[in-house]
Simulated assay, not measured.
Amino acid sequence: MSRQWHTSEAQAARYAGGTLPEPDAWSLEKHLETCAGCASRVSAAVRATAAGPVLTDVRGAVLAAAVPEGAPVAVQGSATGATRFSRLWWAAGPAVRGAWSAALLVVAGAALLLGHLGGAPEARNLLLAFAPVVPVAGVALSYGPHADPLYELAASTPGGGLRLALTRTAAVLAVSLPVLTLTGLLLPASGAPAAAAWLLPGLALTLATLALAPLTGFLTASAVTAGGWLCAVLAPSPDEIGARLARCLDGAPAQSAWAAAVALSALLLAARRTAYDRTH
């Protein structure tokens, strides 16, 4: 949508009356997120309808319940901050709750325990093999009907779809990257590949999952990407894990290939962003 586009009074009235075609209504709702002038125009049109007085009463009751009449400005500001925090927690919450957080701690704890019990190479292999799929699992468990009881409602709003999926992905990465990177730094040195060599593969697998999800759903997409990675490094012979990890992760050619995969997955995700309006 062009940044110079603005809604007209007639279009706002049709939207308020429920006669605007659905594609145009979606486009308008998306535009209202960043255009205060059009938002005011549409709000005035809605207030002019028969439902306007009812909506005004509901809004007044909600505000009165949130901030008592006569409350100091500081209290109102605190209420606003609390509301923003609750919205952020709702948006990101499923990404950092539940079984995924436990799985993250298990991977990190097992690698540290093994490393400090004398198995430094095995601990490094454990971290490098499983760290790339930890964010993928977090993304899979944080978005979709299986993760959010209010998914259908959230997906139907302008802030749903890809925006909500990216918010939860960011929450997953914000938790997993520091924990797993710190785990790698705390492991005893054991040669190549470096303990942080999983970062680009992890990002590539996460973005590939996001790009594939509109076609298959998040659970299936994560099973394909994470399962493909684990099969590549763990099968057929567990005794050769170190050599396979070195081929996949060590050196400029391998890391350059993962960087290219990150860029390609990001481009595919951007090209298919509208498909998230229909993701289930």
Results as ranks from 00 to 15, higher is better:
113 L>W: 09
123 A>N: 04
137 A>K: 06
108 A>M: 08
110 A>C: 10
111 A>V: 00
129 A>F: 05
126 L>M: 12
116 H>K: 09
136 V>M: 15
111 A>G: 01
136 V>I: 08
116 H>M: 04
125 N>V: 01
129 A>R: 01
140 A>Y: 06
123 A>M: 10
141 L>N: 05
135 P>C: 12
108 A>G: 03
141 L>F: 11
116 H>L: 07
103 A>L: 13
127 L>M: 07
132 P>C: 13
106 V>M: 14
139 V>E: 09
109 G>P: 00
141 L>C: 04
124 R>E: 02
140 A>L: 07
134 V>A: 12
126 L>W: 15
129 A>L: 08
136 V>N: 13
115 G>L: 09
138 G>N: 08
134 V>R: 15
118 G>K: 13
131 A>W: 13
136 V>L: 13
120 A>D: 05
132 P>M: 15
133 V>L: 15
107 V>G: 02
110 A>G: 00
135 P>I: 05
105 L>W: 12
121 P>Y: 08
121 P>D: 05
126 L>V: 07
128 L>P: 00
140 A>R: 14
130 F>K: 08
119 G>H: 12
119 G>M: 04
138 G>I: 05
123 A>P: 00
131 A>T: 04
130 F>P: 00
132 P>Y: 14
139 V>P: 02
112 L>P: 00
104 L>D: 01
133 V>P: 03
122 E>K: 11
129 A>P: 00
130 F>S: 07
133 V>F: 15
131 A>G: 06
111 A>R: 03
115 G>N: 07
132 P>G: 13
113 L>M: 03
131 A>P: 01
131 A>M: 09
138 G>Q: 07
114 L>Q: 14
124 R>T: 02
119 G>I: 01
109 G>N: 03
114 L>P: 00
114 L>I: 08
105 L>I: 06
136 V>Y: 14
107 V>T: 06
109 G>F: 08
119 G>Q: 07
138 G>Y: 11
